[in-house]
Nucleic acid binder design. Structure first.
Lengths: 227, 227
DNA sequence: CCGTAGTCGATAGTTGCACTATCCAACAGT
DNA sequence: ACTGTTGGATAGTGCAACTATCGACTACGG
């Protein structure tokens, strides 16, 4: 980590992170990074923690696909020493769940939420009833049915088992010792980046198995995807 | 599926799908749905396949978070009877991988791509070298390192194994008999919707395990997430 | 047969987000 | 002294996904 640069100017900040100066200014305005140490009215020194912070922001934006404002909320939680790791992860889960938000309430939806809650409880998982992912799962269930699939929450069992094993292992990996900031940031980064990795790997695995499943013999001509 | 409505007017199309009339017109303009059967200069009848198509569009947009134009490309592939299921899935994987696209080439990046390719080959997976997910994985690896994690592609092993098992099982589920459209649409819907489900389940599992890991004792006060 | 509501097709406008561009004045280094 | 950078502020850009309105025309209930 600690390369020996202690003091960095705006232009170097830009060079180290690949972000343009205006973009960094924008993040400063939005409060995603703290102001540098002022050495004059129009001059300030930044530190390597600023470099790191900017990289963290880009990681959350690019891999986690979080809107800037949401990244701000996550970072605020991260900086709040009174929040536990579990709390901060809650903020992150909340943050990640945006995008597929506004669902108009319906009878179908309420019923599906109840069904999902029952299913989750059956797994022995204890989660907050307001967890956005519960609603998201319910929404997916409703969507499947509206598309003509005759399914129950049980279709998710295989995925739930896999998720359970992964999450359990993953949390074991995060060392509980060490300074709070490092532990919490590690958990946040892990949550966001390995989610992306899991998704990417599933797609690759699907491509592999799809090839052998739908084209069992050699006739596997290549074809350019449209677009 | 087949409720007995054969003919549907624009206003009913709107009522059945929850979309506004202008939105449906927009999709018509963009070619996501075919025009109805014209009965007069300013009148047309739609069918239940139109209703189904609109629902499919919303599923891809809301759950898969695909841009409208991309949904168009996916639907075009779906409609193209000369494309195999494997082909269409390729289009879908390509489509899903948008968003985290533009990465500026660097030495780090090229090296990481090679490392990921080697890792994937080591798993016995055969995927197209231009698969966007390979690049995405490499990008995540680079990001981890830039954040100070000292890791190799091996960190992904556990996730890869899980993805392998899931994808294999999933592909077995899709029945290869039946009319092409149904098989292909089933595969597409499965790819997109169950990806969302897997992500949601991982978040829930993480919440559950995070609670027991970081707060082994009772002191689990609730705290409102910021924002 | 009449009047209202629905429809088609086209064009223009809105909203939200994430930047990006420009300005100015005040320095900093050389 | 001269050139280039910085902070602070305000305004503008570009894109995506709708949303609104218009004009001409028609379906249908009464």
């Amino acid at each position: 980590m600690s390369r020996g640069f202690g003091k960095v100017k705006m232009s170097e900040l830009s060079a180290f992170t690949g972000l343009t100066v205006p973009t960094i200014k924008y993040y400063l305005r939005e409060g995603l990074v703290s102001a540098g140490a002022r050495t004059a009215v129009n001059q300030a020194d930044y530190g390597e923690d600023h470099v790191h912070r900017l990289r963290l922001i880009r990681a959350l934006v690019e891999v986690g696909d979080l809107p800037i404002a949401t990244v701000g909320a996550v970072l605020a939680a991260l900086d709040d020493a009174s929040r536990s790791t579990h709390d901060v992860l809650g903020v992150v889960h909340h943050a990640l769940a945006l995008g597929g938000a506004r669902a108009h309430p319906s009878a179908d939806a309420d019923e599906a939420v109840a069904e999902i809650e029952h299913f989750i409880a059956g797994l022995g998982w204890q989660v907050a009833p307001e967890a956005p992912s519960l609603r998201e799962l319910a929404r997916i269930l409703v969507t499947l049915r509206r598309l003509g699939w005759d399914v129950t929450a049980e279709v998710f069992r295989r995925y739930a088992d896999a998720a359970d094993a992964l999450a359990s292992w993953e949390l074991e990996q995060t060392d509980r010792g060490g300074p709070r900031t490092e532990v919490v940031e590690g958990a946040v980064v892990g949550t966001v980046l390995f989610e992306g990795a899991l998704v990417a790997l599933r797609r690759l695995a699907e491509e592999h198995h799809s090839a052998s499943h739908f084209a069992p013999r050699e006739q596997r001509r290549r074809r350019e995807p449209a677009g």
